[in-house]
Amino acid sequence: MTDPYLQIENLSFSYPAQGEGEAAPVLHGLNLQIERGSFVAVLGRNGSGKSTLAKLLGMILTPTSGKIRMGGKEITDPALTEDELFALRAGVGMVFQNPDNQLVATIVEEDIAFGPENLGLAPEQIRARVDSALDTVGMRAYAKHAPHQLSGGQKQRIAIAGVIAMRPECILFDESTAMLDPTGRAEVMQTVLALNKEGITEIFITHNMNEAVLADRVLVMDEGRIVLDGTPKEVFAQADTLRGCGLGVPQVTELFEVLRQQGLPVGEPVISEEEGAERLYALLNQ
């Protein structure tokens, strides 16, 4: 039973040539399908093409060649009118890296209202959406605060609220936790998981494997190609490939790998500390 939300066909992208230099290809013929309602993490080092992919999906860039279909509509069709693009944008939310540079208004609730206001909704409707978005991210108490009074994690949750107030089917997170401290990261990840439970398709771009572990599916990108694709367990079992892509594996996965090399019958790779501890307990307490 498949219900693809996102279909990418042979997608390529090059940044235009600068001066005498050649056009630098960033993505090479990507093919990908993503199920509706899934939570997909895209891992890759800086320059692997993962952020370019996000910008293409967010309709910030247009591909050099290839097609992207989202929710059954082709977003890369050059014949799309301004109004059609506008309607498509409302369906795909984006949360960026720097929490400071995506908040527009000086009051939290006004900022969340910004998107719905652009959609031209009635005031009562906007109010209802803002309130429910604030509840979803757990920031109701901060409705009247100014963004600069909030912590990084809180600002990022407001940015997420601003996106969900537009009721998108899909949210793209472009390294949205990279600038946060551990508390901020945890806050954002909790919100991301909660939204996925509500049925929103999520594409989460990161270079942090501990976050990628939480996804249903992990894609590893390097040099503009998808190198690995599978469940977190399947992907993190490929420690050597990951290292080759400039990434690491969670510590507990690495521990099991070295123990296996030492000849211990540790079995399948693990990715969570909980499972790791249980397996070690079973092993050492036979």
């Binding site: 510590q251 249980e278 070690l280």
Partner: peptide
């Protein structure tokens, strides 16, 4: 705390008498 430390702490909670002041993979191994 590092994930490896949390794993060892959990292992000790499960009832296995092990060290929990471990913070590198080498030490855990």
């Amino acid at each position: 705390v590092p994930q490896i430390t949390r794993t060892m702490m959990r292992l000790s909670e499960l009832g296995l008498p092990c060290r929990t002041d471990i913070f590198t993979i080498e030490a855990a191994k």
